[in-house]
């Protein structure tokens, strides 16, 4: 690796880090909670540590605790994982272009594409002269490191930790609001944002908190497909 390469990588790290600070707060909090939850459910810290490194998807990891406590049913675990993670299909479709020409890093970028890394990498205005591939790599790697270290420490310390951080989880909501707003301000027309909003709220009311994601995704896909002509004619999305 040449000196120039190294300085490129370093510059990308410096550009990427500030974007991940809110994730640090959110992932450490949620990761610790997850590690503690595993610890008090009777699992050694190896479990949250290895699961956060390999699955790297918060909501499924919480569900996986219940799977591990129940009866052995690998097919159920697989279908549940597919359903909980189905939204990543949408992320992949949106990132097809952005992950192009990133070399070997592409595989890691896809592997580590959680909600937060996708959202940042999709919307971040990467400064001129910064290598895009390395920028996205650092966003993804830092986020995974936060989640991994938080859940490992939670698993190690368990219920020894006492919290006075009630409400800190709101940091994730606030981040998605900001990302939504950034995207909104970039667009001239807001049809697709409205479709997403109406579909999610409608399905949440109809199907309830535990079962609304899949119907929401189907509805979004149907609305975007049926409305393709008018949406494309109106144009205006970034």
């Amino acid at each position: 690796m040449t000196q120039a390469d190294k300085s490129q990588i370093k510059k990308a790290f410096h550009a990427a880090f500030p974007y991940t600070i809110p994730i640090f707060a959110g992932f450490w909090f949620l990761g610790l909670t997850y590690g503690i939850y595993m610890n008090v459910s009777g699992f050694s810290f190896w479990y949250p540590m290895l699961m956060s490194a390999t699955i790297f998807g918060g909501s499924l990891e919480f569900v996986a605790v219940n799977l591990l406590l129940g009866a052995f049913n690998p097919l159920q675990a697989f279908t549940l994982a597919l359903m909980i993670q189905a939204r990543h299909l949408f992320y992949g479709i949106s990132m097809l272009d952005k992950y192009k020409n990133t070399g070997w890093k592409k595989y890691y970028l896809i592997f580590g594409m959680c909600d937060e890394s996708f959202s940042i990498n999709y919307t971040a205005k990467i400064p001129e002269g910064i290598d895009k591939g390395w920028f996205m790599f650092w966003v993804t790697a830092l986020n995974q490191f936060y989640w991994f270290s938080g859940s490992t420490i939670g698993g190690l310390l368990g219920s020894l930790l006492t919290f006075n951080t009630q409400g800190l989880e709101f940091v994730m909501t606030a981040m998605f609001v900001v990302i939504f707003l950034e995207q909104w301000l970039k667009e001239k027309k807001h049809w697709t944002a409205f479709i997403g909003m109406v579909a999610s709220v409608l399905c949440l009311v109809l199907f309830g908190a535990d079962d609304f994601m899949i119907p929401t995704m189907v509805l979004i896909l149907a609305a975007l497909t049926l409305g393709r002509k008018p949406i494309e004619q109106a144009g205006g999305f970034a």
Partner: peptide, 20 residues
């Protein structure tokens, strides 16, 4: 087209997901 149209809808969905 989906790649361009989905993100705004998905970000809205993620906010609702956080508030579910």
């Amino acid at each position: 087209y989906l790649g361009k149209a989905l993100p705004s809808a998905v970000f809205a969905m993620l906010i609702v997901y956080c508030l579910k």
